[in-house]
Design a binder for these strands. Structure first.
Lengths: 202, 202
DNA sequence: GTTGACTTATGACACGGTGTCATATAGAAT
DNA sequence: ATTCTATATGACACCGTGTCATAAGTCAAC
């Protein structure tokens, strides 16, 4: 977490610093990003940076969290929009992510191509942290269970884990191979379809 | 790839260097590993390291590749052992990975908890690089298709993608949460079971 | 056994990034 | 005014990287 001093900053100065950080993290992944670049861009002295953040990671995770918050909101809306059909909602959500705008896109690209566990954990703590998580319940309550071939909470939890693994992997692949939009969406559709029907005839 | 000089090295010296590198990459993930530690441990001068490798990553990927090669072999054997049942084979394989010994374990742990796309790509290039990959065909030929609810090559490919996403994620989770063996295996079994039966009744 | 051509070894060094710290400045409160 | 607290600043020590000039070794040819 950024230090109190950061939040006490006049809004324009804070915003300016945030923009510089965003720019750097859109340029390269976390481990390659440099504080030197950020302060040069934000035109603040080196010492100041350390008044606001513990280190590079602190700044990064602050940005990441704000991204995640807004995506979480968007995700909930998407489930509503699809009347609780989690599969359609995921496809909607997936297309939204891969059609982000320029700078956000670069940020996301670096994020997904360099998705360590620590980062992934921040992103999925909505459905994943502990099995009986607040956010998890909030989301699963929005899901229409009627169509689902799922016995209990436990299976539901693992279903969501699978869906998120597969979704992550599809996003990564899209960025890595620089797949055209249609191809990326078709791949994802195929995988969601396979998840629905199951791998074994029965 | 390491330079020719590396391969020209007398075996004991080369082995010694490899061990030092392994030790460092078992200690910390790639981006935190330091050449300084490796050369200190291997008792070679700094300049020598650069005679053998381009940089840290070069050494890392050399090690990674040799790991991957041996796992690939093991994977093929596992499919045979399970008479082409890919699901049973995966569970076998999963348990083998999470029961690795001490130093290998630490190496794997750092590997999976810091699995960027570049690293993941090396590990799954068996089934994934290009859709009609040699290795992919070699592996899918070993799989018993009778039980599968799969229409064609294309679906098969995506099935394998899904299985590998889910497997990766389960390994990561095992390491991250330091799950006891039984819990980790049960989680994985559940997810494989769900993949087999499908999420939607019908 | 000396020369020359090539390969390998070595460690000092320049460079760049990090995090700290002593000092300066500002603001508020009494 | 004075004191207390919060903030700002940039020089600096530290450490890791990759390079490069130089030294040492190998080997074949003469």
């Amino acid at each position: 977490m950024p230090k109190i001093t950061f939040f006490n900053l006049p809004e324009d100065k804070r915003e300016n610093l945030v923009l510089a950080a965003k720019k750097e993290f859109a340029r390269v992944p976390l481990y390659q990003a440099s504080i030197s670049n950020i302060i040069k861009d934000a035109k603040i002295p080196r010492g100041s940076f350390y008044q606001y953040f513990d280190d590079k990671e602190d700044a990064f995770f602050y940005l990441l969290n704000s991204h995640v918050s807004s995506y979480k909101l968007h995700f909930v809306q998407t489930i509503h929009k699809n009347n609780g059909d989690i599969f359609d909602a995921m496809i909607d959500f997936y297309t939204a992510i891969i059609t982000e705008e320029k700078e956000n896109m670069q940020f996301l690209r670096n994020l997904f191509l360099n998705m360590t566990h620590r980062i992934g954990n921040v992103m999925t703590r909505s459905f994943g942290e502990t099995d009986l998580n607040e956010d998890f319940k909030k989301i699963t309550n929005l899901i229409n269970h009627e169509q689902l071939n799922i016995e209990d909470e436990h299976e539901l939890f693992h279903m969501m884990q699978i869906i998120s693994s597969v979704t992550f992997h599809n996003i990564v692949k899209k960025f890595a191979r620089e797949l055209p939009f249609d191809e990326a969406v078709n791949n994802y559709r195929t995988e969601i379809y396979l998840l629905k029907k199951g791998f074994v005839s029965g």
